[in-house]
Design a protein around this nucleic acid. Structure first.
Length: 184
DNA sequence: GAGCCGATATTCT
DNA sequence: GAATATCGGCTCC
């Protein structure tokens, strides 16, 4: 469904392209999905990227082919999901930071233990979609338990510095869709 | 809503 | 031992 070559470009160009696409999860018979509204690019030569110092056990999937899902543990507690970009061996990815719930909102609320703030943060959306370390390395294009589907682009987007980083903090590599509903 | 803080796995110094 | 691509609970407003 998705042309993988779209993802083989530099993450700064792929990131805004992903706005409006759907991230779909099928887990234990329940389908949950969101429209991607907020992303950040992490390049291979980017001091803020996990891949900057080379391949490790944690970031190995970041060096696989474009369209691979890279899931890492953040602050020892949360899971965060990335779409690998660029040619295999490159080590670049786009972090999915936020979205709008589409399918399975009730399931998301059950998993989160609350009815609001389901997908407005990288750790929260992984919890809502039941994405964890067991999904690291799967292919989002072929479609396993988690897949990407194309969707109409937003009317526009804004670029800002990335959130929560200290190195290369000045780069405007965060992309937020216009018209996204408020994060309640 | 803003500000502080604790939880805690993995990497880095 | 310190830092980290976060979040929720708590205290204040």
């Amino acid at each position: 469904v998705i042309d993988r070559s779209l993802l083989e470009d530099h993450p700064v160009r792929v990131a805004p392209l992903l706005l409006g696409w759907h991230l779909v999860s099928e887990h234990q018979g329940a389908t949950t999905s969101l429209v991607i509204t907020e992303v950040e690019a992490y390049a291979h030569d980017d001091p803020a990227s996990h891949s900057f110092r080379g391949e490790t056990q944690r970031n190995a999937s970041m060096f696989r082919q474009a369209g691979t899902l890279y899931v890492y543990r953040s602050y020892g507690i949360h899971w965060c999901a990335n779409v690998v970009t660029g040619p295999a061996g490159h080590g670049a990815a786009v972090l999915i930071r936020g979205g709008t719930p589409v399918r399975g909102r009730d399931v998301m609320a059950m998993r989160r233990g609350r009815a609001d703030h389901l997908t407005d943060g990288p750790g929260k959306l992984c919890r809502s979609l039941s994405i964890d370390g067991s999904h690291d390395g799967l292919d989002l294009v072929e479609g396993g338990g988690v897949r990407l589907e194309p969707g109409p682009p937003p009317a526009g987007h804004v670029t800002t510095p990335r959130i929560g980083i200290t190195r290369a903090a000045e780069l405007p590599w965060r992309f937020v869709a216009l018209g996204a509903p408020p994060p309640t």
